[in-house]
Design a binder for these strands. Structure first.
Length: 869
RNA sequence: GGAGGCUUAGCUCAGCAGGUUAGAGCGCAUGCUUCACACGCAUGAGGUCGCGCGUUCGAGUCGCGCAGUCUCCACCA
């Protein structure tokens, strides 16, 4: 037998074990007609990113599920992969370029710049892979994918062309969200709204005929340069007369029409709204209805254009200047404080500028139909299901998806514009002439696609689509998608409609949603706040198993969780506990095979029976995705039932060399390792390798199933009677400060002598008894005896000299009072006719039992009190 | 303006197909160098399960209302 250190050291074990798994090729999933497939595709992390706690939870959950299913005999495939993360990566490389070389991407040009990004990707692309491995992730590394690898790029191209051909992708001039810092368009989902204090400026626009003026209210006075009309509500009697007239735009001098449109809310502001079609989505629509001119006054960098003397000013600088000019010239009527929501870029948090721009869009309405159906009819299930509502609400109101980005890093749009005839050629292969007029004067659209466009195809592009691969055939649709609620719109929703459109089949059956990890104060972890915790550091300190267990327990699906380092410590302690339990079992092991003995003692049946309940519950919890619950139950079983009771109880047997005890210990320990393995893969595998075992490795051993033959309800209850007696004696001794060395001979009076005779050895060891006499009758002379009672037993210990009679009396009286209260409650319940007739029989029976027990206890207590005198 | 979450021990959180004595970790108190483990063992203190009403024989658990708190979606300039 191997000498094992007293303290478990994850560092000595984790790397070695992970290598063993790799060597055994256990992560690799083969198509196997004998097995059912179980597939998870990883939410692809940013290829140049670093593992944070958010990933750590996400990956841990997936790994737990995959390991469980693998042990259950499925062909369990976990596809790993990475996202090119368009904006994020490009910004990082640009920043790097600026700081180190003082260059912009335009200085380098597209091709050279892209080389730099690929260099960057190759340099940092391994980091996250290594980190995932450190966590214990059992991904099939042979199938590693990247959103910009050849296959995924092909899938993107195919999808773009096919949607274009179906008329589901179009190019058009719309108001889009523009980030002046990232200088690209964003989709609606990429805009985050923040409430910011602002102002409402009331401006005077004189009527052109000199007959008066209108006063408009605006939060963005600088956009007045682009005003091409004023709108009022058609029902508004105040303004009936001026509809159709024109007014003069201050500072600019343009004559603009006053139109009537229902969009205007009569209650708000003055009831007159300035119309800036190029910089407000609503104004854009109104403008289309009334044929208003479109004048763009803010450029890609957020600076004024087409604004005369204000040209070149930053939009917020321009605001100040314009307001001053308006005020100086008497156009500023009043200013009000006004809190409003400002859209910001989800990457850089600059204020987003709505502006009219020519962009590519995915037409959502037809795609949303199926995406709604499959969630409504339960084909795809959200866990917890409340997120289905969030999803459906979004999908029902979804607007067309702006997919073009003014970036270089990403999938370039496969569209070519003809300089001669203006035709747009969209092609699966790179075009060299216009498909309509044959001209070679064509140029490719410089823009790339939204990063999420390629991630939307992830569940099938990673399995080989658009080719009809055997993998795709076998492993698609995938089973579970695990992700945080924050990317339901970005990603989950888009995978669903993409899967339905291109595969005609849902991409996954279940969406398992988890919450965000927050710091101990409940704040979001972020780099800028400096409150982020590095999972790798935690693994370094406490081990991957401890981190995993921390992340899995103590929270429930969909809810946020605060991260406490102390919990990692607690979980490390748990790992150590298991380690020592195993060490102890091994130290005493002489049997070489894991098999149960022919004869089982009471305590053996008890632990085996408890184990069966655990197995049944854990399997059930897994089926319901209640991983935290399952993990907690395993923890409790190991620490309480196995270590604190069963190991303690069997110590004397082991000392006597009783092999049956060894066998049961080994049997239970092995099942424990199996049950725990998905959660704590490293330590369980390490221990498994050190004890007699059948499978080549624990990772491919079977997961325990409930075994009826090992469920012993009666023995379980009997043994718990004994446990109760042991606890009662311990409790008494602790109260009286009796040192463990003092071991009195005790007399136990009971109506179940068989049970307690079988249990004398436990009493001796666990209740520090010098000897135990089990009898049906009370000893003749109880003077000088301390007496402690349970429902099933009266126990006498000759230690009266240690007793403080008053305290003793008070204690018994307190207990008696409680017993009497219980009796009262039970009696009341049972006297209730409707309870007895309506409650299920087992509940009524349980109440009767409780009553009988409480009565017995009360009687025993009363007797004790009498004996005290 | 809509939708949703949360409110249970000093702290952080589990629990609930409605039915034992409401649990855990950490913290706290007392006692233990008991031959696996002090990253431990034993014992204990600590909870009107946010408030109110209702359904039920029976409600932290289901329904409604209220309060506090957080989040998401939409957005009226």
């Amino acid at each position: 037998m191997r000498e094992l250190p007293k303290q478990y050291d994850p560092k000595q074990v984790e790397g070695k074990i992970y290598q063993q798994w790799l060597d055994g090729n256990y992560f690799h999933a083969e198509r196997d007609p004998e097995k059912k497939p179980f597939t998870i595709v990883i939410p692809p992390p940013n290829v140049t990113g670093q593992l944070h706690l958010g990933h750590a939870v996400d990956e841990t959950i997936q790994d737990v599920l995959i390991r469980y299913k693998r042990m259950k005999g499925y062909a369990a495939l976990w596809v790993p992969g990475y996202d090119h993360a368009g904006i994020a990566t490009q910004i990082k490389v640009e920043e790097n370029l600026r700081v180190n070389e003082g260059l912009t991407r335009f200085d380098l040009g597209r091709e050279k710049f892209l080389d730099r990004v690929w260099d960057w990707k190759n340099k940092y692309g391994d980091r996250i892979v290594t980190q995932l491995k450190t966590l214990g992730s059992s991904c099939d590394w042979e199938r590693q994918r990247f959103t910009m690898d050849e296959g995924c790029s092909k899938a993107v191209r195919e999808v773009f062309c096919s949607l274009y051909e179906k008329g589901l992708i179009y190019k058009g001039k719309r108001i889009i969200n523009w980030c002046p810092h990232c200088t690209t368009a964003l989709s609606d989902a990429e805009v985050e709204y923040e409430e910011k204090p602002g102002r409402l400026w009331h401006l005077r626009y004189p009527l052109a005929d000199g007959s008066g003026e209108v006063v408009v209210a605006t939060t963005r006075p600088e956009t007045m340069l682009g005003d091409t009309g004023v709108a009022v509500n058609p029902e508004d009697s105040r303004y009936k007369d001026i509809v159709g007239k024109t007014c003069i735009l201050p500072l600019v001098g343009r004559e603009i029409p006053i139109v009537a449109d229902e969009y205007v809310d009569m209650e708000f502001g003055t009831g007159c709204v300035k119309m800036t079609p190029c910089h407000d989505p609503n104004d854009f629509e109104v403008g289309l209805r009334h044929d208003l001119e479109q004048i763009l006054v803010i450029d890609d960098n957020g600076r004024i254009i087409n604004g005369g003397k204000y040209d070149g000013l930053d939009r917020y600088e321009a605001r100040k200047v314009i307001l001053k000019d308006l005020d100086d010239q008497g156009y500023l009527v009043k200013v009000e404080e006004h809190v409003h929501n400002v859209g910001t870029c989800y990457r850089c948090h600059s204020d987003v500028e709505p502006l009219a721009s020519d962009q590519w869009f995915v037409k959502m309405e037809p795609l949303a139909k199926e995406a709604i159906r499959v969630v409504e009819d339960g084909t795809i299930r959200f866990v917890p299901d409340r997120f289905a509502k969030t999803y459906l609400n979004w999908m029902h109101n979804v607007r067309d998806w702006c997919i073009s980005r003014q970036l270089w890093w990403g999938h370039q749009i496969p569209a070519w514009y003809c300089a001669d005839c203006g035709h747009v050629t969209v092609s699966r292969t790179d075009a060299c002439r216009c498909e309509k007029c044959g001209s070679e004067h064509i140029t490719r659209d410089p823009d790339v696609l939204d990063t999420w466009f390629s991630s939307a195809l992830w569940p099938f592009s990673t399995l080989g689509w658009p080719e009809k691969t055997p993998d795709l055939e076998y492993f698609y649709p995938t089973d579970v998608l695990v992700t945080g609620y924050d990317i339901i719109f970005f990603w989950v929703a888009r995978m669903i409609f993409s899967g339905m459109e291109h595969m005609k089949k849902e991409p996954f059956k279940t969406v398992l949603i988890h919450g965000l990890i927050r710091d101990p104060h409940g704040k979001k972890m972020s780099k800028s706040a400096g409150n982020g915790v590095d999972p790798i550091e935690m693994i370094d300190k406490y081990g991957a198993d401890a981190l995993r267990f921390n992340l899995i327990t103590g929270n429930s699906p969909g809810n946020d969780m605060r991260f406490y380092e102390e919990r990692c410590e607690a979980m490390r302690n748990f790992a150590n506990k298991l380690w020592n339990a195993a060490r102890y079992v091994m130290m005493n092991l002489t049997v070489e095979k894991n098999a149960l003995p022919a004869e089982l003692k009471l305590e053996d049946k008890w632990i085996l029976s408890k184990l069966q309940s655990l197995i049944a519950e854990v399997n059930e919890n897994f089926d319901k995705y209640e991983l935290g619950l399952a993990a907690t139950k395993i923890y409790d079983f190991i620490w309480d039932s196995f270590c604190d009771w069963y190991i303690e109880i069997t110590k004397p047997r082991l000392r006597e060399g009783d092999q049956s005890a060894q066998q049961v210990l080994l049997y239970v320990l092995t099942d424990i390792l199996r049950l725990l393995h998905p959660f704590m893969p490293f330590i369980t595998e390490e221990i498994y390798g050190a004890i007699p075992h059948e499978a080549q490795a624990l990772i491919i051993d079977r997961y325990p199933e409930f075994d009826e033959a090992l469920a012993f309800a009666k023995e379980e209850a009997d043994f718990e009677s004994v446990m109760e007696a042991v606890k009662a004696v311990r409790s008494r001794r602790a109260e009286m400060n009796v040192p463990p060395s003092k071991r009195p001979h005790i007399t136990l009076v009971t109506e179940k002598p068989d049970v307690f005779r079988a249990g004398t050895v436990y009493m001796a060891n666990l209740a520090y008894a010098g000897g135990v006499n089990v009898t049906g009758e009370a000893p003749a002379d109880t003077a000088g005896m301390v007496n402690v009672v349970t429902g099933d037993a009266k126990i006498y210990m000759p230690m009266a000299e240690l007793v403080d009679l008053d305290k003793e009396r008070a204690r018994i009286e307190k207990e008696l009072e409680k017993a009497k209260k219980d009796i009262g409650n039970q009696q009341k319940k049972l006297a209730n006719e409707s309870f007895v007739s309506r409650a299920p029989e087992r509940v009524v029976a349980a109440e009767r039992d409780k009553l009988a027990k409480a009565r017995a206890l009360a009687a025993n207590l009363e007797e004790s009190l009498k004996n005290l005198g």
